[in-house]
C-alpha cells in the first residue's frame, strides 16, 4: 500500500486553516452576544479558536496517516478515514471512466485527484493528493487493465 504524496498535508492544513477562520468568525459573533466583560470575551475567543484550529490541524495530519492506496492485480484498493475507517475495493473491469481533477491549491502544489467511476454512484474510489505526473501514469495503468469486459 502506498501513502499519498506528502504535499497533500500542506493542502489539507491550508483547508483546515480556512475552515477554522470561518469558525472563529462565528465564535466572535457569538461571543459578542454573551453578557461578558471584554477580557472574558477575548479569553473565550482565543481558547475556542485555538481548540478548533488545533483540532482541525490534528485531524488533517491523522487523515494523511490513515490514507493508503494500492493497485492489486485486478482490483484497486483504498484505505482511509479517521473516525470511520474504510477499505474499498474496486475491480478494474468495472471502471467506466477515470477522471483527473485539480483545484487551485492542488495546482499550486502540483497535485491531482484521481476519481474512478463505475455504474454505481456509491463506489468509493477517489484518491486525492497524487503527484500530477504519478496521477497521469496511474490513470493509464488503470485504463489499461479496464475495458476488457462489459462494465455493467
Amino acid at each position: 500500500m502506498t501513502p499519498l504524496d506528502p504535499r497533500v498535508r500542506t493542502q489539507w492544513r491550508i483547508e483546515a486553516l480556512a475552515a477554522s477562520l470561518v469558525a472563529t468568525l462565528g465564535i466572535v459573533i457569538g461571543a459578542f452576544q454573551l453578557p461578558l466583560a471584554w477580557w472574558g470575551r477575548l479569553g473565550l475567543i482565543v481558547v475556542a479558536a485555538a481548540a478548533i484550529g488545533g483540532g482541525l490541524q490534528f485531524v488533517a495530519s491523522l487523515r494523511y496517516r490513515y490514507w493508503k492506496y494500492g493497485l492489486a492485480d485486478d482490483v484497486l484498493i483504498l484505505e482511509h478515514g479517521v473516525w470511520t475507517r474504510r477499505r474499498s475495493t474496486t475491480p478494474y473491469f468495472r471502471v467506466q471512466n477515470v477522471d483527473l481533477s485539480q483545484g487551485p491549491l492542488e495546482r499550486w502544489l502540483g497535485l491531482k485527484r484521481l476519481t474512478i467511476r463505475t455504474a454505481s454512484a456509491f463506489t468509493d474510489a477517489s484518491i486525492p493528493g497524487l503527484d500530477a505526473d504519478a496521477a497521469e501514469q496511474l490513470r493509464l495503468r488503470i485504463l489499461e487493465r479496464a475495458g476488457r469486459d462489459a462494465a455493467v
Binding site: 478515514g81 473516525w83 470511520t84 475507517r85 474504510r86 477499505r87 474499498s88 475495493t89 474496486t90 475491480p91 468495472r94 463505475t118 455504474a119 454505481s120 463506489t123 468509493d124 474510489a125
Partner: peptide
C-alpha cells in the same frame, strides 16, 4: 457487484 467497501467507525472498532 461493482465494488465493495468495509467500514468501521470508532464505536464499531
Amino acid at each position: 457487484i461493482q465494488s465493495l467497501s468495509v467500514a468501521a467507525n470508532f464505536f464499531q472498532r
